[in-house]
């Protein structure tokens, strides 16, 4: 089937990478069809049935219109606001304490103002008035200390 001039065999091998040398046409054509036939595919190559569907699905995905509004800055801003609210909102217990404190302070000021505005009795001497005010002041001081201790 494959007849080849053996005398040229070594010559051909040596010249394999030298493309400037011309080979005899008759040598080349001898048995060429057989070799080409042997080098042709001998079986059928079949791609998977899913290949086409996968390619088309990916192509559809690529042409799907993309969302044009950037949502991430809004999401980030919402997260920051939520975090700030959590951070700055006082706990419920502290709220009650703060209200009690405010009430006591307000009561003290009201009482103090009332005392200061007490009309002085014209019959009292200056020393009596001073002594009375000192006693009342000490009492108020005690009350205020007590209220602070409660707080």
């Amino acid at each position: 089937m494959l007849s080849y001039n053996i005398q040229n065999f070594n010559q051909v091998l040596n010249d394999m990478n030298n493309e400037n040398i011309n080979l005899p046409e008759e040598d080349f054509n001898e048995g060429l069809e057989d070799i080409e036939q042997m080098l042709k595919p001998q079986c059928e190559f079949k791609a998977s049935d899913t290949l086409k569907d996968e390619v088309l699905a990916q192509a559809r995905e690529e042409v799907k219109p993309q969302r044009k509004v950037n949502l991430w800055p809004w999401v980030a801003a919402a997260c920051v606001v939520g975090f700030a609210m959590l951070w700055f909102t006082p706990p419920e217990e502290k709220k009650a304490d703060a209200a009690l404190h405010a009430h006591l302070v307000s009561a003290y000021h009201t009482k103090h103002q009332r005392m200061v505005s007490n009309q002085m009795d014209a019959r009292e001497s200056f020393e009596d008035i001073e002594r009375r005010l000192r006693i009342e002041g000490a009492q108020l001081k005690e009350e205020f200390k007590m209220s602070n201790q409660i707080y």
Binding site: L2, V12, L13, D15, M16, N17, L23, D27, F28
Partner: peptide, 9 residues
């Protein structure tokens, strides 16, 4: 051509 010649040999 060289490849075919080589294969033949």
């Amino acid at each position: 051509r060289y490849a075919i010649m080589h294969l033949k040999s």
